[in-house]
Amino acid sequence: MNMAAAEEEFAILTKDLRKEYDGLVAVSDLGLRIRKGTLYGMIGPNGSGKTTTIKMLVGLLRPTSGEAFLMGEKVPAVRNIDRIGYMPQEMGIYTDLSVHENLELFSDMYSIGKGDFRRREAELLGMIDLEERKGSLVSHLSGGMRHRVSLACALVHDPDLIFLDEPTVGVDPELRVGFWDHFRELRRRGKTIVLTTHYMDEAVRCDVVGMMRQGELIAEGTPSELMTVTGAGNLEDAFLSYAGRARA
């Protein structure tokens, strides 16, 4: 497949992407091909290399070897940087600013005009159901609300490719359902979403799931494919089955 065709079809392409820390392999020769408009779930236990992979893709970490392309541009994707949204695991919002100020700050970083920002803010606040708390300091919000603000900040510039690192950690079950509704809505609008989670049960809602263990991608496919191949009744059992094969 030539590069132009690949750019047309895949939001993310990686070739032998590898990251080592002092000789310790965090991500091992990763090959990802994620089509545009996919809701991709990266699952695996803590320390399996999910966050390191995301950080290499968004340009926060330099790979030890290998390469990655986002929408056809080699990482770090400077030309496409305003088409990429990122929600870090630690939320990455300013707690001493209000919800509105956080959104405005990050929209300013993407040079979004005031008029466009106002429209976008109204849309996002509606989506995360925080219109009433627009003026509240983030430090006065609950953990779940902060997660919603963090998600809104990642979406403020209406990116085409969205990386969400553990977006549902510490979020109550009811809110998690709401989050997944947002993710599906974004995908319906043509966005590509890559999220990490160690909640196997919720990964079943993804279009494609990549299973990671000790820095390696041990399996990839739709949730139903993964469960069918392993004969497992759920993704957790499927993961354990693949992990057993990897050990063997």
């Binding site: 340009g59 990429i84 939320m91 990455g92 919002i93 300013y94 993407y110």
Partner: peptide
């Protein structure tokens, strides 16, 4: 660093 805002800043055009 600890709140992740630096990581987020570094993924913007800034």
């Amino acid at each position: 660093r600890s709140y992740g805002t630096l990581d987020r800043l570094l993924t913007t055009p800034v």
